[in-house]
Amino acid sequence: MEYAKLGRSGMRVSRLCLGTMNFGVDTEEREAFRILDAALDAGIQFIDTANGYGGEKSGLTEEILGRWFRQGGGRREKTVLATKVYGYMRDPLDGPNREAGLSAYKIRRHLEGSLRRLGTDHVELYIMHHVDRSVLWDEIWEAFEAARLQGKIGYVGSSNFAGWDLAVAQGEAKARGSMGIVAEQHKYNLLCRLPELEVLPAAQGLGIGVTVWAPLDAGLLGGNALKPGVGVRGAAQRERIEQVRGQLLAFSRFCAELGEREDTVALAWLLHQPAVTAPILGARTLEQFERSLRALEVKLAPDALAKLDEIFPGPGGEAPRAYAW
């Protein structure tokens, strides 16, 4: 396993992160435990979850992780744990504050709930699951600073932030003498390269690591999208497949030339991007997880990277060079 510092923090994390969104929904608890144990065995100590994961039972995924930690064997001590705050938790006790957001009330209350479900007294990384432009940064940073001083969180992360959101957040943090955000979790893959315009350059410039959700774009880059009868697809996904069918066919042919699976190449490509700290593996089964590890071994030559750029053109570089003279 390879490791890298998370942004400008001093904490090292595995170059692959285990995502847990399927646990308790598409993945039963016993299989989730097998995947978690296999991740630690493979050297993946970076585990990502969220308070809202669990389908109709918000918090279920955190509860599963808590039961896994309670098995002992150093599971919690070996883990760099990330969870999130922002969403609606279906908790009637939240009253008028039940709506999604980042108020100090919600940050404090929902952090306590996450720690209780996870069976731990702290998380290494506490992530804002979405930006909330209706709340002052003074309020947000004060809440995170209090949690850090209490030893309940180690670092603060963000998710789904625009480049200018990252810049504003870091400016406000610096004014308070705070470290600010150390990691941004963002959708980025061969089919979704818009972050190259603003978000990735901003993150690199501000010393923010990037973890990637949807690295296979909901399975489109996994090799099965063009196979009839594989999986249950809604109308929107079928339409999306038709829109990119030509690219997926070219990608499949190229991966065959390389002698690698499509999902392996898609993950390996992300590991070659300088801004990316770790793709998040959203495996539903142990087999899927174990297959993902191959991405660490694949080194893409410059001509292979150029061919992928040809199949999946990016936005043309960073802004404003991508669209201005």
Rank of each mutant, 00 (worst) to 15 (best):
residue 1 M to C: 07
residue 2 E to F: 03
residue 3 Y to H: 09
residue 6 L to Q: 08
residue 6 L to M: 10
residue 9 S to T: 06
residue 9 S to G: 06
residue 11 M to T: 13
residue 14 S to H: 03
residue 20 T to D: 11
residue 21 M to A: 15
residue 27 T to K: 15
residue 45 Q to E: 06
residue 49 T to Q: 11
residue 60 L to N: 11
residue 60 L to S: 08
residue 63 E to V: 13
residue 75 R to T: 09
residue 76 R to D: 07
residue 78 K to C: 01
residue 81 L to W: 04
residue 87 G to S: 13
residue 91 D to P: 03
residue 95 G to C: 03
residue 96 P to Q: 02
residue 96 P to Y: 04
residue 97 N to H: 12
residue 99 E to W: 07
residue 109 R to N: 13
residue 110 H to M: 02
residue 114 S to G: 14
residue 117 R to K: 15
residue 122 H to A: 02
residue 123 V to I: 13
residue 130 H to R: 15
residue 135 V to T: 10
residue 135 V to N: 04
residue 136 L to T: 12
residue 145 E to R: 07
residue 147 A to W: 04
residue 148 R to F: 02
residue 150 Q to S: 13
residue 158 S to E: 10
residue 165 D to I: 06
residue 166 L to P: 05
residue 171 G to F: 04
residue 171 G to K: 05
residue 172 E to I: 00
residue 176 R to E: 03
residue 177 G to S: 12
residue 181 I to Q: 11
residue 184 E to S: 14
residue 185 Q to T: 02
residue 186 H to N: 06
residue 196 E to T: 10
residue 196 E to C: 10
residue 198 E to K: 12
residue 199 V to K: 08
residue 205 G to V: 04
residue 211 T to Q: 11
residue 212 V to M: 06
residue 213 W to M: 07
residue 217 D to I: 00
residue 217 D to M: 05
residue 225 A to L: 02
residue 227 K to L: 14
residue 233 R to H: 14
residue 233 R to V: 05
residue 234 G to Q: 06
residue 234 G to Y: 04
residue 235 A to D: 14
residue 236 A to M: 15
residue 236 A to Y: 12
residue 238 R to Y: 00
residue 238 R to D: 01
residue 239 E to G: 15
residue 241 I to F: 02
residue 242 E to A: 15
residue 243 Q to C: 05
residue 245 R to G: 10
residue 247 Q to I: 00
residue 256 A to V: 01
residue 260 E to Y: 11
residue 262 E to H: 08
residue 263 D to V: 09
residue 268 A to Q: 08
residue 274 P to R: 10
residue 277 T to A: 10
residue 278 A to E: 06
residue 285 T to D: 03
residue 286 L to H: 05
residue 287 E to S: 13
residue 287 E to T: 13
residue 287 E to C: 04
residue 296 L to M: 15
residue 304 A to T: 07
residue 307 K to Y: 09
residue 310 E to K: 10
residue 316 G to V: 02
residue 318 E to D: 01
residue 318 E to V: 09
residue 320 P to K: 05
residue 321 R to H: 10
residue 325 W to Y: 08
